[in-house]
Amino acid sequence: MTDPFQKKTSRFLKKLFTFAGTRNKKMQKGSMDMDTIKQMVRGIMTTRADEIDCAECFEQLDQFVELVLAGKNISDAMPLVQHHLEHCPDCKEEFEVLLKALRSIT
């Protein structure tokens, strides 16, 4: 592949991720650039003034995860937690692990 754009992109990505051991899986596919930007723009454009913070999200996360496990409509029941998880990679990661953990014990 000698596509000049691809060359340029891969050089750019190399520069962007020179440090070892990043957890970003998308970059290994070589297409993280546009995806990352899209995610950022989506994050910006869906920002609300009334977002809850990580502490408030954590407070309600146990109730939220039980609703998810029960198959309830969470965007109706707990929209602010749902919204926070869409904007906070740390809380989202914890939610996903908690969900897996609970599925394993029930």
């Binding site: 039980e66 914890e94 908690l98 014990i105």
Partner: peptide
Amino acid sequence: GNCRFTTWALKIGVNTAITELR
């Protein structure tokens, strides 16, 4: 008491574990 006790305990467990691993 808004959820099962084990859900609450695991929530704290997951948070503690991931904080350490991160």
